[in-house]
Design a binder for these strands. Structure first.
Lengths: 205, 205
DNA sequence: GCTGGAGTCAAACGATCGTTTGAGGATACG
DNA sequence: CGTATCCTCAAACGATCGTTTGACTCCAGC
């Protein structure tokens, strides 16, 4: 049933990631999408069942890898006495930024930011299912490192950190890569600024 | 040409604000919109020319008031020796949160967040025209209060503050108003958390 | 009283949307 | 060779989109 066509299915997913990031889920039509991918219009419904299912698949493919990397990085430092708030933030941020190594990965972060903006309930539910346990584990580690903060206070600050992350990762903001700076160096700079900023916001008395 | 119908035009704008926030610019159709507003379908094109012009009008109406309040608040404190980073943040944040006094104002903040997510160039250009000088004046005041930061460093931090603001103001996050807390108290709490968090992120060495 | 512009209305326009259909090509297995 | 399965293709489906049209109501001004 699968493993047969390495081409069509993947071409659709790649084109979908790019077009969803560029024009949004509603704005990108299946005709634009299949035309860009060089496949037949009916191929989407054949391989994925519907446009909504395709959207879910675009998310699942990336989120599974992203969350696995995050939890892996967290497991290496969680509970250790030498671990700092900056370390935990690095474990959360770096996998997301390094996903952008892949050209399509950078587009995916914009897709993710769009999904946050859309208040569609089914999509939020889907994201909550895939994200929930990750956020919970990171929150627990933050709580250990910041015992002076009440539960409500900690939630507030983590929520604001999430906002800064989403903003920076999706390329919303004014900051753009300078022409003289390599993609690699710019990413490292972004991580550094994000961690310093978030650590200060999280830790302050 | 104007001042004639106090009803139809305003009803369309109110319904548009709500539906754009809920379903997005593409997702909200003129038929849903005019039906919710209790006006005829053709009324939108008659009063605004097109759907795009209606979107622009929704933005212009709110942004003019928002930016005016922000600059007014900034003017009261800018350049004074006793002014703190927290004061400047308050001048920027409070007008946005108090726009939510109006029921429709709260919806507008979500519309604004959506506009950030849409990378539509014409809409970003429009926002830049209306927002640009405000951001510039606030940046200048931050630069005065944080002389130890380089220009690039300051831009980075302000960008991240913007992310946290957009996130919190649009109700993206996990934080929701508790049932026991009044709307007024919740808004004040949001402002307090935002200012403390952002001030720490902006000021840290 | 009549005229003319402003506003509202139902109806229709062409375009585009997501999805379905049925025929046909390709390949592997008996 | 026959046939079953996976896949692709052009074409069409009904629905909905933003927009336009032309008739109708209302009301102020000469």
């Amino acid at each position: 049933m699968n493993g047969s066509s390495p081409s069509t299915r993947e071409r659709i997913l790649a084109a979908a990631e790019a077009l969803f990031a560029q024009r949004g889920f509603d704005g990108a039509s299946l005709r634009q999408l299949t035309s860009a991918a060089g496949v037949n219009l009916a191929a989407v419904n054949y391989h994925f069942g519907s446009k909504d299912k395709l959207v879910e698949e675009v998310f699942r493919r990336r989120l599974d890898a992203l969350n696995a990397h995050r939890l892996e990085a967290l497991a290496r430092i969680a509970g250790q006495p030498s671990t700092t708030v900056e370390d935990v933030l690095d474990a959360f941020i770096r996998p997301a930024l390094e996903l952008s190594h892949d050209d399509h990965g950078a587009l995916f972060m914009r897709v993710l930011a769009r999904a946050f903006a859309e208040h569609d309930d089914t999509l939020r539910q889907f994201l909550s299912d895939n994200y929930g346990h990750v956020i919970r584990q990171f929150t627990a580690e933050f709580a250990r490192l910041l015992p002076h903060l009440g539960k409500a206070e900690l939630y507030w600050r983590i929520d604001l950190v999430t906002g800064a992350l989403t903003h920076a990762m999706s390329g919303f903001g004014l900051i753009r890569r300078q022409s003289g700076v390599s993609e690699q160096a710019h990413r490292e700079q972004t991580i550094t600024h994000l961690i310093r900023f978030s650590a200060a916001g999280l830790s302050h008395p």
